[in-house]
Simulated assay, not measured.
Amino acid sequence: MAPRITRRATLLGLAGTLASPAILRAQSTDAFPTDEAPIRDTEAVKRNISAFAQQSWQDHFEELGVGCLLADVTSRAVHYWGGDGETYRLFPSSVPMSEDLTKRGYTEVVRKAKNPRWTPTPNMRERDPSLPAFMNGGPGNPLGTRAMYLTWPAYLVHGTHDTRKIGRQSSSGCIGLYNQHVEELYEMVQIGTQVRIL
């Protein structure tokens, strides 16, 4: 007697077939997927920060000091712990476009700026000769409304007016946040805040 094909079995089989590509993608160990559409071809999306795992500062820093900031490139999230031992914030972020542009390790915040001026690096202008030599702060400036400069030249934690970039591989090395998030973080972060790019 042949097995009976039921509606339920058919639906389960179809669901399994449709889910297979997603399961395979989820098992990938690559930190930077190669199948993301270019930013210019995508619409702005909202990221649900509740999907990120909370981290502990003790896993990354020896002491809190005036505060600690962890930029996790793999999960595309920024974690901040205040020097008071109670403040904790978690924000979705953009990450560098490639591993070549990603600098990892420990640094600290050495300067902060409101409505920062942007000066593209020589490498950025080589990749895109249409970039200006500099741009004053304001709408359209890639650094958004706030910037926190690190000991590493040309690497920053900053805002962005282009909300499509958050949660994506979209920067030339910096860590980007929604403007409203970077404005909140900017008020908490002090000069000397420890930073780890992981």
Score class of each variant (00 low, 15 high):
3 P>H: 03
4 R>A: 02
4 R>P: 00
5 I>A: 00
11 L>I: 12
12 L>K: 11
13 G>W: 00
18 L>W: 01
19 A>E: 06
20 S>R: 08
21 P>F: 01
23 I>Q: 02
23 I>C: 07
24 L>P: 05
24 L>C: 06
25 R>Q: 12
25 R>Y: 11
30 D>P: 08
32 F>Y: 07
34 T>W: 09
36 E>A: 12
39 I>R: 06
40 R>N: 09
42 T>K: 05
46 K>G: 12
46 K>R: 15
48 N>T: 14
49 I>H: 04
49 I>N: 03
51 A>M: 13
53 A>E: 09
56 S>D: 13
56 S>G: 08
57 W>Y: 14
58 Q>N: 11
59 D>T: 11
59 D>P: 07
59 D>L: 05
59 D>F: 04
60 H>N: 11
63 E>N: 10
65 G>A: 02
66 V>N: 13
66 V>H: 15
67 G>Q: 02
69 L>N: 01
70 L>N: 14
72 D>L: 05
75 S>Y: 02
76 R>E: 05
78 V>I: 06
78 V>Q: 04
80 Y>F: 15
81 W>R: 02
81 W>V: 04
81 W>A: 00
85 G>Q: 02
87 T>G: 07
87 T>Y: 14
89 R>Y: 07
89 R>W: 02
90 L>Q: 13
95 V>D: 10
96 P>I: 04
97 M>Y: 10
97 M>V: 15
98 S>N: 05
103 K>H: 01
105 G>W: 07
110 V>W: 04
111 R>E: 00
115 N>C: 10
115 N>L: 15
117 R>E: 06
118 W>Q: 15
118 W>R: 15
124 M>P: 07
127 R>Y: 00
128 D>G: 00
128 D>H: 02
130 S>E: 05
130 S>F: 05
132 P>T: 03
132 P>N: 01
133 A>Y: 01
134 F>K: 07
135 M>L: 10
135 M>P: 04
135 M>H: 03
136 N>S: 06
138 G>N: 11
139 P>S: 03
139 P>T: 04
140 G>H: 08
140 G>S: 11
141 N>W: 03
145 T>F: 05
147 A>E: 13
148 M>H: 04
149 Y>V: 15
150 L>P: 07
151 T>R: 13
152 W>E: 03
155 Y>G: 08
157 V>E: 00
162 D>T: 09
162 D>E: 10
162 D>F: 12
163 T>D: 14
164 R>C: 14
164 R>F: 14
165 K>Q: 10
165 K>M: 09
166 I>H: 06
169 Q>T: 06
172 S>Y: 15
172 S>T: 10
175 I>L: 10
177 L>A: 10
180 Q>M: 06
181 H>N: 11
183 E>L: 06
185 L>I: 08
186 Y>A: 08
187 E>T: 08
188 M>F: 05
188 M>Q: 10
190 Q>N: 02
191 I>S: 01
193 T>K: 07
193 T>A: 09
194 Q>W: 01
194 Q>E: 06
195 V>D: 04
